[in-house]
Amino acid sequence: MRELITLRVNGERYEVAVLPHRTLLEVLREDLGLTGTKHGCELGECGACTVLLDGVPVLSCLTLPLEVQDCEITTIEGLEEQGRLHPLQETFAELGAAQCGYCTPGMLLSAVALLRQNPHPTREEIKQALSGNLCRCTGYTKIYEAIEAAAERLSVAHQGERRPDAALQP
């Protein structure tokens, strides 16, 4: 029996009738068309399906939509603001942090949560924060570099708050 629920995803409200046993991953991808959230194992063993619940990274493959109606859900589609990429998206693209790109959405969401909490993470703190996201292509190095570069850009942008556009230029 489907239940009518309301989800708040990337600032938008979705009313959707779901079967209780559908995971948030399935509902995002199959009901809401938000296919940017990927799946690699569906058992909580890879991190590809990471989304943010009220800013906190969790696995959508192990989340029941019925339980998160009171949360703000952020997926990869929600990182752009008014058509402008998040600095992490820019640096991931520019510095080769995405190869096949399949782990990238989950990786980016973990990184967004990290920089919100810790704007200047050390390499070790980055490794800890990403330790739930497996990547099979990059060897992680370029991902660390991209996060460090984004942290730098965000801090420059923060200092020159009046001119964020100019400050965000590479």
Partner: peptide, 9 residues
């Protein structure tokens, strides 16, 4: 325990 995501949930 496991990973940051699992510890968050």
């Amino acid at each position: 325990v496991s990973t940051p995501q699992l510890r968050n949930a």
